[in-house]
Amino acid sequence: MERIIELRPELVQALLETFAMIGVAIPIAVLLGTPLGIWLFVHAPGSIAPQPKLHAFVSGLVNMLRSFPFLILLIAIIPFTRFVVGTTVGTAAAIVPLTINAIPYFARLVEQNITQLGTGAVEASRAMGATRGQIIRNVLLVDAKPGIIGSITITTVSFISYSAMVGLVGGGGIGDFAIRYGYYRYETPVMIIAVVLMVLLVTMVQWGGNRLARVTDKRL
């Protein structure tokens, strides 16, 4: 315990760095990924305003970015990261690949949330003369709200683990803390504390997200 108390300032700093990475990457992913997911649904073949060729291109690009192994992406975009934030190490540098990876990841989840609603409400709205914008704002987003909240939860949990990976390249956060003390210095108790904190963080996010999704679900 003496060693844990000694390292407490560094552990607190690591937690703050993890919060910073997630606190920037996830809101940007929601802000940009939501309209992208809506666009993918609206312009899919057989949807509200189909554009098959353009949709195929954008969908393929989303799939490519979403499925790209994160560590490889982290290394591959180093020049871009340096251009954006002026460095390739630290928390600010880690936010760039996290955000780039999170946007298509969340966009695909949003598209799936809306697709699962079915076509009944959309067709009824169109029959009543609703515009495309009204259908999106007043029908699709309203009905898909619980699913989108669940998707935000899933994305946050996934990228908490991704944020730990950036520790391998000096990205800061709990992952960097665990690697420095648990792996390089063989201080197993310190690494266990870091792991427990990560598990608690994920558990809290999952619990909060599930609760909020239930509250907003008008079917319950």
Results as ranks from 00 to 15, higher is better:
residue 78 I to Q: 01
residue 219 R to F: 09
residue 131 T to S: 14
residue 218 K to F: 15
residue 187 E to A: 15
residue 23 G to S: 06
residue 38 I to A: 07
residue 1 M to L: 12
residue 172 G to R: 10
residue 136 I to D: 03
residue 204 M to Q: 07
residue 141 L to S: 05
residue 126 R to D: 02
residue 68 F to K: 06
residue 193 I to P: 00
residue 18 T to I: 08
residue 203 T to Y: 12
residue 155 T to A: 14
residue 55 H to I: 06
residue 1 M to W: 10
residue 167 G to E: 00
residue 56 A to Q: 05
residue 76 A to R: 01
residue 79 P to V: 11
residue 218 K to E: 15
residue 212 L to P: 02
residue 128 M to W: 00
residue 73 L to D: 06
residue 43 H to P: 03
residue 90 G to R: 08
residue 128 M to A: 12
residue 144 A to M: 02
residue 72 I to H: 01
residue 61 L to R: 07
residue 216 T to P: 00
residue 209 G to T: 13
residue 201 L to H: 01
residue 12 V to A: 09
residue 105 Y to D: 04
residue 6 E to G: 12
residue 159 F to H: 09
residue 88 T to P: 00
residue 53 K to N: 13
residue 66 R to I: 06
residue 124 A to E: 10
residue 184 Y to R: 14
residue 207 W to Q: 12
residue 71 L to E: 01
residue 43 H to Y: 12
residue 87 T to W: 04
residue 190 V to E: 08
residue 196 V to R: 05
residue 100 I to D: 02
residue 32 L to F: 12
residue 61 L to C: 13
residue 60 G to D: 01
residue 23 G to W: 01
residue 185 R to V: 10
residue 119 T to D: 04
residue 43 H to N: 14
residue 206 Q to R: 14
residue 220 L to A: 15
residue 164 A to G: 12
residue 144 A to H: 05
residue 164 A to T: 13
residue 152 I to M: 08
residue 65 L to C: 07
residue 110 V to L: 08
residue 204 M to I: 15
residue 94 A to V: 09
residue 170 G to H: 04
residue 97 P to A: 06
residue 44 A to F: 06
residue 24 V to D: 04
residue 107 A to N: 07
residue 136 I to N: 02
residue 92 A to N: 13
residue 174 I to A: 05
residue 16 L to C: 09
residue 97 P to H: 07
residue 62 V to W: 02
residue 28 I to L: 12
residue 93 A to W: 05
residue 14 A to I: 04
residue 176 D to T: 09
residue 80 F to S: 05
residue 185 R to G: 10
residue 112 Q to C: 07
residue 213 A to K: 09
residue 192 I to K: 11
residue 130 A to C: 07
residue 155 T to F: 03
residue 127 A to K: 05
residue 83 F to A: 15
residue 2 E to F: 13
residue 14 A to S: 12
residue 54 L to K: 11
residue 152 I to F: 01
residue 60 G to F: 02
residue 47 S to G: 09
residue 1 M to V: 15
residue 96 V to R: 00
residue 107 A to W: 01
